[in-house]
Design a protein around this nucleic acid. Sequence first.
DNA 1: AAGTGATTTAATCATTTGTTTAATATTCCC
DNA 2: GGGAATATTAAACAAATGATTAAATCACTT
Lengths: 195, 195
Amino acid sequence: MEPLTTEQKIIEAASKLFSRKGFAATKTREIAEEAGINLALLNYYFGSKENLFKGVVKEKLRMLLEAMIPILSDAKVPLDQKIATIARNYTKLLLENEELPIFILNEWSVNKELFVDITRNARLFTMPVIQEQLKEKGITTNTADFIVNILGLVMFPFVAKPMITSSGLVKEEEFADFVKRREGNIVEWINKINA
Amino acid sequence: MEPLTTEQKIIEAASKLFSRKGFAATKTREIAEEAGINLALLNYYFGSKENLFKGVVKEKLRMLLEAMIPILSDAKVPLDQKIATIARNYTKLLLENEELPIFILNEWSVNKELFVDITRNARLFTMPVIQEQLKEKGITTNTADFIVNILGLVMFPFVAKPMITSSGLVKEEEFADFVKRREGNIVEWINKINA
DNA sequence: AAGTGATTTAATCATTTGTTTAATATTCCC
DNA sequence: GGGAATATTAAACAAATGATTAAATCACTT
């Protein structure tokens, strides 16, 4: 495999540190050290810490949305399959990137202006398709609840992981099994909710 | 009403700013300005920024847990009533403190050591009571799922509020109605899930 | 091999930031 | 009312931090 370019090394280090600690707590010198590069290269390639952060956030947000939007908005995919696919996609994605949802949701909450910029011209959700499919099946649950319920059931365990594990509700070493078991259950649960 | 003491003014300002922006992004000078006090008083009363932060986190965590733990762990409260009370408590609490859950969950994620200190000797969840009550009613849902589902359904909309509103899924001005409507639905949903 | 542009480095700058100090003001108690 | 404890202030300090500079090195073309 190719060795990473300087630019890639910086992005990887920044991605890791920003995700773990957030924007303000991550220092440019830490990123440089983690990447194994000279501090000045960070500004040489990305201009500023903020600009680098924007790049990381964009990529992370894309990862988070891509597991959901294309599936939700595809009218050819039936509702049942949408639920199953989203549960599967997120369980896999978030097991590999546990800090992803809390990072994005927290930065979005703390730094709304940044996301106005990033999400401009980006259709985040396509409600009409879902609305139609719910109607077809005679389901009265409203569209927003439908989506929020799925996301809540699948994402919340990751968002609240420290609370869940440190309370003993789920042991740290059993967490992966816990969410994998939920993956299958969520499809049933959502169907029961909508019945 | 009594005028606030200096100590109280600092706590209120710190509480507001830490909740909104997190530890690292909040500067001591901002806190002092927001509180309308001299910068040195912060250290005079609280010793350090970190110590002040710990106080704020403790109080916020207490708020978040108190809406749940006493109810969950009370064997005299039947399961149905537990669900309804927790949904009601959190909807009210979080409408009044929208940043509360994302603040606590993010800081917990970012700064685990701090919470080891704070939650030491604090029984966060009491599973045996719930486990017994689920068994009595012949519900096969496991205890962790039961609790995570309730919390996810009730807390997730607040955690993901920026995403939900800026995507147009729920309009900002309709958000309060949205979660109030969910409050009643959640009881039904949880019962359906467990049926 | 020389020249050219891109990349990397060490050093430095200007601010910001958490904290402390020493002096002044205020409150409390006898 | 005076003196001791408490509270408040302005100023300063040292370290940290994001960014920049100018020189050095590297890669590539001719």
